[in-house]
Amino acid sequence: MTLWLPLGLAGLLAITYGFTLSRSPPGPAKLLLKISGMLILTGVAAWAGAPWLLVAGLAACTVGDAFLAGKAERWLLPGMAAFFLGHVCYVALFWSAGQVSGDLMNYLARGVLVFAGAGYVFWLSPSLGPMRAAVLAYAAVILVMGAAAIALPPGYALVLVGALMFIASDAILAHELFRRPPGETSRLLPSISLWNLYFFGQMMITLGFLLK
């Protein structure tokens, strides 16, 4: 009971943010509502004795959320750096949980993810401008994170689903940042989708370790 109540509150706050302030201009209310769910999720993970790499990854992503609640032209790079650190924590966490070996289908799935991700970044590349190096570095670490999640042993299905949701969220965000026509306002469906995929992907990763 003590675990599900705060997680339910975190989910409710995240849904509220996604359907209300996710497309609003930067401001204190947007910042506080955006990070509230992740703060609770990070606190639950720490209180429940989750691996420290999970807590560190959640905390780094919460900092990234705070940066990305501000103006993109100023805070996008610091936000990406915080999320990069979060993904490094997740890669180390997933590898420490053990990896399958000798499974051809698993290797194939990892290969499909990496090649599909590389193709997507190649498609984005003409629109990246001075952000190209940062996006390439970020794409590399999130694809390694996804491949490490695919390679987790049986019993980590929630973690895998959460990691793939996280990747899907970032793919939508990249499209909105770099492929949306200049001056066009953010669209409702992509904004809601990317936020809910991101937050509930993080929750799935957390539950995947807390329920082991």
Rank of each mutant, 00 (worst) to 15 (best):
W75C: 12
W75I: 04
W75G: 04
W75M: 13
L76I: 12
L76W: 05
L76Y: 08
P78A: 06
P78E: 05
P78V: 06
G79H: 09
A82V: 08
F83L: 03
L85Y: 04
C89S: 10
Y90R: 00
Y90F: 08
F94K: 04
F94H: 04
W95Q: 13
S96G: 12
A97S: 15
A97C: 13
A97M: 13
Q99C: 08
Q99W: 07
Q99R: 12
S101T: 09
G102N: 12
G102F: 11
D103G: 09
D103K: 15
L104Y: 15
M105I: 13
Y107S: 14
L108K: 05
A109F: 08
A109D: 07
R110V: 08
G111K: 09
V114G: 06
A116F: 13
G117V: 03
A118I: 09
Y120N: 12
Y120V: 10
V121L: 13
F122E: 15
F122D: 14
W123S: 13
W123L: 15
W123C: 10
L124W: 00
P126F: 14
P126L: 14
P126D: 15
S127F: 04
L128W: 00
G129Q: 12
P130W: 08
P130I: 06
P130K: 10
M131A: 15
R132G: 03
V135A: 06
A137I: 06
A137S: 10
A137P: 01
A139M: 11
A139G: 15
A140D: 04
V144D: 06
V144W: 07
G146P: 08
G146A: 11
G146K: 03
A149R: 00
I150K: 01
A151V: 03
A151F: 03
L152Y: 05
L152E: 01
P153Q: 11
P153L: 05
G155N: 13
Y156S: 01
A157N: 14
L158T: 10
V159H: 02
V159Q: 05
V159T: 14
L160Y: 03
G162T: 06
A163L: 01
L164D: 08
L164M: 15
M165I: 07
M165Q: 08
F166N: 12
F166R: 15
I167T: 09
I167R: 04
A168R: 07
S169K: 01
D170S: 09
A171T: 10
A171Q: 05
A171K: 00
I172H: 06
I172M: 09
L173Y: 02
L173T: 02
H175I: 10
H175T: 13
E176K: 03
E176C: 04
